[in-house]
Amino acid sequence: QASGDSFMRGWYNWGNLQDGYLWFYLVNLGVTALLFLSAFFTADQRRFTVCAPAAVIWFICEFVVFQPNTYDNNKLLYAAYFLVCGVVASYMVEIYRRLRTLPGRRALAVGALVLCMLSAVLTIGRESIAGYCLYGDSQLKAAEYIYENTEPEDTVLTDMRHNNEIAALTGRNIVCGSTSYVYFHGLDYTERETDMQSMFSAPQANCALFEKYSIDYILVSAYERNNFNVNEAEIEALFPCVFDENGVQIYKVTF
């Protein structure tokens, strides 16, 4: 795990794959990118104590990555950006005060605020009219059934999707979640995924696998049908269906 490209290594310009260096930060940071250096080099002691750690973090993250996925450097850069925003905002207030004799300084200030907040306002506007649905009604009812009718240590055989309602809403064990969490850290779940396919497609011939993973329930929904070759007829013949709602079924494993 800690060798090769798995963890800390030198890597210049972390997540910038196609833009010029300065342009990348200009389009991503906007006014903050334009004013950061001026704010940093003219900062008084109080602002400097806030800004200096951010500069150190930023400098290190430009040359070193600390995890297999280089883009994850943004987790450190968010903290640095949070500090930088405060220092730049203070610097902008200072500029506004110094320009008290400049005609139209209020209009200039409004323009600067628009540049600072426009992308955030557009994002909030987009989200306010978006129609995302993380979980459908039948998924919520299935999760509610699992939560109310199973034991905390029970295990459910279900799909490996990222937003799995069983793992997210009930706290029950699942055989295998999204491998994207651990793939970049070198953990291989190929065997487990293969075993899941075997249990879904030929449950009667793979009773030993159900015992191996201590499976108590099977969830069958559109996700499982799309991602696994689910033998629903055999599952129905072997296990009692304890929940059935709009294409989502839960079977209780009774070996």
Rank of each mutant, 00 (worst) to 15 (best):
R47F: 10
A130E: 14
L83D: 08
L169H: 00
V31N: 06
S3K: 15
R172F: 01
G86F: 11
W58T: 15
E165C: 05
F82T: 10
Q139G: 11
L209Y: 03
E94H: 02
A107R: 15
T123Q: 07
V156D: 00
S90H: 13
R97S: 11
S90D: 11
I235L: 01
W58N: 09
P152Q: 02
D195W: 00
P240V: 01
I95W: 10
R97F: 06
I166V: 09
N74D: 11
N246I: 07
R100D: 15
I57Q: 09
E193I: 13
C51S: 12
E151C: 03
G136D: 10
Y251G: 01
H185P: 04
D159M: 09
R192E: 08
E153V: 08
F24W: 15
F228Q: 03
N16Y: 05
V65A: 12
T101W: 12
K141P: 09
C176A: 13
L34H: 08
V65T: 15
Y25G: 08
Y145E: 05
A208R: 06
D44P: 01
E153R: 09
Y223W: 14
A112D: 05
A107K: 08
A112Y: 06
L99S: 11
F7K: 14
Y132S: 14
I218E: 04
N73D: 06
A54K: 03
P203C: 01
L17H: 14
